[in-house]
Protein backbone atom coordinates (compact mmCIF):
# COMPACT_ATOMS: atom_id res chain seq x y z
CA UNK A 1 0.00 0.00 0.00
CA UNK A 2 2.94 2.32 -0.45
CA UNK A 3 4.56 3.28 -3.71
CA UNK A 4 7.70 4.55 -2.00
CA UNK A 5 9.00 8.09 -1.74
CA UNK A 6 7.75 10.62 -4.24
CA UNK A 7 10.12 11.98 -6.87
CA UNK A 8 10.56 15.55 -8.02
CA UNK A 9 12.37 15.44 -11.38
CA UNK A 10 14.23 18.62 -12.28
CA UNK A 11 12.21 21.04 -14.38
CA UNK A 12 8.81 19.66 -13.36
CA UNK A 13 6.24 21.77 -11.53
CA UNK A 14 5.97 20.65 -7.94
CA UNK A 15 2.52 20.36 -6.31
CA UNK A 16 1.87 21.64 -2.80
CA UNK A 17 1.06 18.06 -1.72
CA UNK A 18 1.74 14.64 -3.28
CA UNK A 19 -1.42 12.65 -4.07
CA UNK A 20 -2.35 9.01 -4.63
CA UNK A 21 -4.93 7.76 -7.11
CA UNK A 22 -7.01 4.78 -5.98
CA UNK A 23 -9.55 2.62 -7.79
CA UNK A 24 -12.36 0.60 -6.25
CA UNK A 25 -15.17 -1.54 -7.57
CA UNK A 26 -18.06 -2.78 -5.48
CA UNK A 27 -17.70 -6.49 -4.84
CA UNK A 28 -20.69 -8.42 -6.13
CA UNK A 29 -19.85 -11.85 -4.74
CA UNK A 30 -19.87 -10.92 -1.05
CA UNK A 31 -22.98 -12.41 0.53
CA UNK A 32 -22.93 -10.74 3.93
CA UNK A 33 -23.91 -7.10 3.43
CA UNK A 34 -22.10 -5.99 6.61
CA UNK A 35 -18.87 -7.47 5.37
CA UNK A 36 -19.38 -5.71 2.08
CA UNK A 37 -19.93 -2.40 3.86
CA UNK A 38 -16.76 -2.58 5.93
CA UNK A 39 -14.08 -5.14 5.17
CA UNK A 40 -15.10 -5.53 1.56
CA UNK A 41 -14.50 -1.90 0.79
CA UNK A 42 -10.94 -1.86 2.04
CA UNK A 43 -10.14 -5.04 0.20
CA UNK A 44 -11.48 -3.71 -3.08
CA UNK A 45 -9.33 -0.56 -2.97
CA UNK A 46 -6.40 -0.57 -5.35
CA UNK A 47 -3.64 1.99 -5.37
CA UNK A 48 -3.06 3.05 -8.97
CA UNK A 49 -0.28 5.60 -8.74
CA UNK A 50 1.08 8.69 -7.05
CA UNK A 51 1.86 12.15 -8.32
CA UNK A 52 3.96 14.94 -6.88
CA UNK A 53 4.29 17.26 -9.89
CA UNK A 54 1.90 18.65 -12.49
CA UNK A 55 3.71 16.65 -15.19
CA UNK A 56 3.32 13.42 -13.22
CA UNK A 57 -0.38 14.18 -12.78
CA UNK A 58 -0.98 14.49 -16.52
CA UNK A 59 1.21 11.46 -17.18
CA UNK A 60 -1.11 9.41 -14.96
CA UNK A 61 -4.40 11.07 -15.89
CA UNK A 62 -4.12 10.56 -19.63
CA UNK A 63 -3.59 6.83 -19.02
CA UNK A 64 -6.63 6.37 -16.78
CA UNK A 65 -9.68 4.85 -18.45
CA UNK A 66 -12.21 7.49 -19.51
CA UNK A 67 -15.05 7.80 -17.04
CA UNK A 68 -17.75 6.89 -19.54
CA UNK A 69 -15.92 3.61 -20.20
CA UNK A 70 -15.83 2.63 -16.53
CA UNK A 71 -18.38 0.03 -15.38
CA UNK A 72 -21.07 0.91 -12.83
CA UNK A 73 -20.21 0.87 -9.15
CA UNK A 74 -16.64 1.90 -9.69
CA UNK A 75 -14.92 4.83 -7.99
CA UNK A 76 -11.74 6.77 -8.54
CA UNK A 77 -10.26 8.45 -5.46
CA UNK A 78 -7.55 11.11 -5.55
CA UNK A 79 -6.30 11.66 -2.00
CA UNK A 80 -3.36 13.33 -0.37
CA UNK A 81 -0.56 10.80 0.05
CA UNK A 82 -0.82 9.28 3.51
CA UNK A 83 -4.63 9.51 3.72
CA UNK A 84 -6.52 6.39 2.72
CA UNK A 85 -9.89 7.10 1.06
CA UNK A 86 -11.80 5.49 3.92
CA UNK A 87 -13.85 6.86 6.81
CA UNK A 88 -11.61 4.93 9.21
CA UNK A 89 -8.48 6.89 8.33
CA UNK A 90 -7.59 9.29 11.18
CA UNK A 91 -7.68 12.24 8.76
CA UNK A 92 -11.26 11.36 7.81
CA UNK A 93 -12.73 10.09 11.07
CA UNK A 94 -14.14 13.51 12.08
CA UNK A 95 -14.72 14.62 8.53
CA UNK A 96 -17.41 14.81 5.93
CA UNK A 97 -17.95 15.41 2.25
CA UNK A 98 -19.80 17.54 -0.21
CA UNK A 99 -21.59 15.25 -2.66
CA UNK A 100 -22.51 16.55 -6.12
CA UNK A 101 -24.94 14.48 -8.16
CA UNK A 102 -24.76 14.81 -11.93
CA UNK A 103 -26.70 13.35 -14.82
CA UNK A 104 -24.96 10.66 -16.81
CA UNK A 105 -22.55 12.18 -19.28
CA UNK A 106 -21.88 15.32 -17.26
CA UNK A 107 -19.30 14.06 -14.83
CA UNK A 108 -16.17 13.90 -17.01
CA UNK A 109 -15.44 17.59 -17.30
CA UNK A 110 -16.52 18.31 -13.74
CA UNK A 111 -14.18 15.57 -12.42
CA UNK A 112 -11.26 17.00 -14.35
CA UNK A 113 -11.99 20.48 -13.00
CA UNK A 114 -12.36 19.14 -9.47
CA UNK A 115 -9.00 17.35 -9.62
CA UNK A 116 -7.28 20.43 -10.99
CA UNK A 117 -8.89 22.67 -8.37
CA UNK A 118 -7.52 20.45 -5.61
CA UNK A 119 -4.06 19.90 -7.12
CA UNK A 120 -3.75 23.63 -7.77
CA UNK A 121 -4.81 24.53 -4.18
CA UNK A 122 -7.84 26.50 -5.27
CA UNK A 123 -9.79 25.66 -2.10
CA UNK A 124 -8.64 28.22 0.40
CA UNK A 125 -9.16 26.11 3.51
CA UNK A 126 -5.73 25.52 4.98
CA UNK A 127 -5.09 21.81 5.18
CA UNK A 128 -8.76 20.80 5.35
CA UNK A 129 -9.08 19.00 2.01
CA UNK A 130 -8.38 15.24 2.16
CA UNK A 131 -9.31 14.14 -1.34
CA UNK A 132 -11.89 13.84 -4.09
CA UNK A 133 -13.91 10.93 -5.45
CA UNK A 134 -15.85 10.22 -8.62
CA UNK A 135 -18.48 7.50 -8.36
CA UNK A 136 -19.94 5.89 -11.48
CA UNK A 137 -23.48 4.71 -10.83
CA UNK A 138 -26.52 3.49 -12.72
CA UNK A 139 -28.69 6.56 -13.22
CA UNK A 140 -26.42 9.40 -12.16
CA UNK A 141 -22.80 9.91 -11.23
CA UNK A 142 -21.38 11.58 -8.15
CA UNK A 143 -18.44 13.74 -7.24
CA UNK A 144 -17.36 14.07 -3.62
CA UNK A 145 -14.83 16.25 -1.89
CA UNK A 146 -13.75 15.11 1.57
CA UNK A 147 -12.58 17.45 4.32
CA UNK A 148 -11.18 16.79 7.78
CA UNK A 149 -13.57 18.65 10.05
CA UNK A 150 -17.26 18.19 9.37
CA UNK A 151 -18.21 20.46 12.29
CA UNK A 152 -16.34 23.46 10.83
CA UNK A 153 -19.21 25.19 9.07
CA UNK A 154 -17.13 28.12 7.85
CA UNK A 155 -14.83 25.69 6.05
CA UNK A 156 -17.60 23.57 4.55
CA UNK A 157 -19.35 26.73 3.32
CA UNK A 158 -16.11 27.95 1.75
CA UNK A 159 -15.63 24.61 -0.01
CA UNK A 160 -19.21 24.75 -1.31
CA UNK A 161 -18.74 28.27 -2.67
CA UNK A 162 -15.43 27.29 -4.30
CA UNK A 163 -17.04 24.25 -5.91
CA UNK A 164 -19.77 26.40 -7.43
CA UNK A 165 -17.22 28.89 -8.73
CA UNK A 166 -14.66 26.41 -10.07
CA UNK A 167 -16.57 23.45 -11.49
CA UNK A 168 -18.93 25.22 -13.87
CA UNK A 169 -21.67 22.84 -12.78
CA UNK A 170 -24.83 22.36 -14.85
CA UNK A 171 -28.04 23.76 -13.36
CA UNK A 172 -29.36 20.23 -12.81
CA UNK A 173 -26.51 19.30 -10.44
CA UNK A 174 -27.47 18.92 -6.77
CA UNK A 175 -25.18 19.33 -3.75
CA UNK A 176 -25.45 18.10 -0.18
CA UNK A 177 -23.05 17.83 2.73
CA UNK A 178 -22.78 14.54 4.64
CA UNK A 179 -20.65 13.78 7.65
CA UNK A 180 -18.88 10.43 7.47
CA UNK A 181 -20.70 9.53 10.71
CA UNK A 182 -24.03 9.94 8.88
CA UNK A 183 -22.75 7.78 6.03
CA UNK A 184 -21.73 5.03 8.50
CA UNK A 185 -25.25 4.95 9.94
Amino acid sequence: LDLGPVEYPAGEHRLQHPYCLWFSKRQTLVRNPQVQATEGYGQSLRLVGQVATVEQWWGLYIHVVRLHDLPQHTDLHLFKKGIRPMWEDPANSKGGKWVIRLRKGQVGRAWENLCMAMLGEQFVTGNEICGVVVSIRYQEDQLSIWNRTASDQATTARIRDSLKRLLNLPATATMEYKTHNDSLK
Partner: peptide
Protein backbone atom coordinates in the same frame (compact mmCIF):
# COMPACT_ATOMS: atom_id res chain seq x y z
CA UNK B 1 7.36 28.15 2.48
CA UNK B 2 5.03 29.78 0.02
CA UNK B 3 1.94 27.80 -0.90
CA UNK B 4 2.07 26.52 -4.46
CA UNK B 5 -1.10 27.61 -6.25
CA UNK B 6 -1.91 26.79 -9.87
CA UNK B 7 -4.93 27.94 -11.83
CA UNK B 8 -6.76 25.76 -14.30
CA UNK B 9 -5.45 27.53 -17.38
CA UNK B 10 -1.84 27.04 -16.25
CA UNK B 11 -2.43 23.35 -15.54
CA UNK B 12 -4.14 22.84 -18.89
CA UNK B 13 -1.16 24.43 -20.61
CA UNK B 14 1.18 21.91 -19.02
CA UNK B 15 -1.07 19.07 -20.12
CA UNK B 16 0.28 19.39 -23.60
CA UNK B 17 3.89 19.84 -22.60
CA UNK B 18 6.20 17.14 -24.01
CA UNK B 19 7.25 15.97 -20.57
CA UNK B 20 3.74 14.69 -19.72
CA UNK B 21 3.49 12.46 -22.77
Amino acid sequence: GTKIVYERAFLMNLRNSPISK
